[in-house]
């Protein structure tokens, strides 16, 4: 068997294993959805009036949902970091390492599984958004495709980082702590309030961190707001984090296990 078809076949086997885990124990994945859904409801129904500056509830829902969707990815990949870290402490990984399989397939299985879960989570949280009144009036089919592509790329980037975090974490708790920034970062982005309402010194930080450009791009695609240079900053982040996370994860994984 050629090494590419071996890689594809083994990755597919590993993916099926991870999806089986997720299907059999859905509570972890579902728990991770609670944070974005609760924040969505909290900000719309409790802080909504103060946050929207009087622009009205439906306008604020429209503003909020794109950020919440990307936050959902941040939340989902915390689960990835945790499950990678628990998985690595299992004897079965040692067994895989002594088998003539494609090495990378173990990580690739986790990554693809996590991206699929992220997309499904985004769809679920999106459905909650629609249920409370989110509507996209302007988006064309192309916009939707681009939005979908952005979500996949963003999930891929955060997943590779989370996999790296999972690999270097000795315990599940450590993994969940290490991955915490992935759900905190959206709080420091334009997800809940516009950048211009933040203190001046903080605006550049909020502007150039990975979430804001991605949120602004998604907002533009779904709602027709101005995207500007945000799309390529978002793409650069996705690409950069993917390469970084991939390198970090594979080099960590290829070291001798403890």
């Amino acid at each position: 068997m050629s090494s590419l078809s071996l890689a594809v076949r083994d990755s597919n086997t590993m993916l099926r294993r991870n999806l089986l885990h997720a299907r059999r124990y859905p509570s972890l994945t579902l728990n991770l959805l609670l944070t974005p859904v609760m924040l969505l409801l909290l900000f719309v129904y409790i802080f909504g009036n103060a946050m929207s500056g009087g622009a009205g509830r439906s306008a604020y829902i429209a503003y909020l949902v794109p950020g919440i969707l990307l936050m959902t990815i941040g939340s989902t990949v915390i689960g990835t970091a945790v499950s990678v870290s628990t998985d690595m402490s299992e004897g079965i990984i040692a067994r895989f390492r002594t088998m003539a399989i494609h090495r990378g397939s173990i990580l690739v299985g986790h990554v693809i599984g996590s991206v699929i879960q992220s997309v499904m989570s985004v769809v679920l949280v999106g459905a909650v958004g629609v249920a409370i009144g989110f509507r996209s009036h302007h988006a064309t089919v192309l916009d939707w495709l681009a939005a979908f592509g952005l979500i996949v790329l963003f999930a891929l980037a955060l997943t590779w980082i989370a996999v790296g975090m999972g690999l270097v974490s000795p315990t599940a708790e450590a993994a969940s702590n290490n991955a915490m920034p992935l759900i905190l970062l959206p709080l420091l982005s334009s997800a809940f309030v516009p950048l211009h309402s933040m203190p001046g010194w903080f605006q550049p930080i909020a502007h150039y961190q990975p979430f804001t450009p991605a949120i602004e791009t998604l907002r533009g695609l779904l709602l027709g707001t101005h995207i500007g240079n945000n799309w390529w900053i978002a793409l650069a982040w996705c690409l950069g984090l993917t390469v970084l996370g991939y390198r970090w994860s594979t080099s960590t994984f290829n070291q001798d296990p403890k």
């Binding site: 083994d10 086997t13 885990h21 059999r24 124990y25 004897g91 040692a94 002594t98 399989i101």
Partner: peptide
């Protein structure tokens, strides 16, 4: 080679049969 380490190397989250089929898949 085949290795049975000192500590259990089975996937506890899936069934015994699924563990076996997983091995079969990985042996192509």
């Amino acid at each position: 080679i085949g290795v049975t380490g000192q500590f259990s190397a089975v996937d506890g989250l899936i069934t015994g049969e699924e563990n076996m089929l997983l091995m079969a898949d990985l042996h192509h």
